[in-house]
């Protein structure tokens, strides 16, 4: 029971290590790094690999941004099964809409409460 925490901790950390390597060694920009991780998660789910990965690592697999790519593919595939090809378009943001909406909403609230600072 306790081992899932350790697995989540290590796996989540390893995904971040990949991101840091893309950043520091491959010299990619933050935007490129972000896109590569999202696309990687999306492709993995396309092959049906991300769900077993979540079963194994729990939050270690759902918290990193790769999980967002997984959700995009997941929603698209689920809707496609129900409604055919048009479901790819409607399903893409079905699962992810909660995440996107919260990002906008909480960003909006934070902008009211705080002012940005250039502290080193």
């Amino acid at each position: 029971m306790f081992s899932i925490y350790i697995t989540a901790f290590i796996v989540g950390g390893l995904i971040c290590v990949i991101g840091q390597l893309l950043f520091d060694v491959a010299k990619l920009t933050p935007a490129h790094t972000l896109c590569i991780l999202v696309v990687a998660g999306s492709i993995l789910d396309g092959f049906g690999l991300y769900e077993p990965f979540i079963d194994f690592a729990g939050a270690g697999a759902t918290i990193p941004i790769t999980s967002f790519g997984n959700s995009l593919t997941h929603g698209a595939l689920a809707e496609a099964e129900k409604h055919g090809i048009i479901g790819v378009l409607t399903g893409m943001f079905e699962v992810t809409s909660s995440g996107i909406t919260s990002a906008i909403l909480f960003g909006f609230i934070a902008s009211f409460l705080f002012r940005s600072k250039g502290k080193a």
Binding site: F23, K117, G118
Partner: peptide, 20 residues
């Protein structure tokens, strides 16, 4: 001015991007 120029040329400071 730090905040204005970071936003102009690099990333807005709110984004908190890592630097080398």
């Amino acid at each position: 001015q730090h905040n204005a120029i970071e936003r102009q040329f690099r990333y807005p400071i709110e984004y908190g991007v890592q630097k080398g």
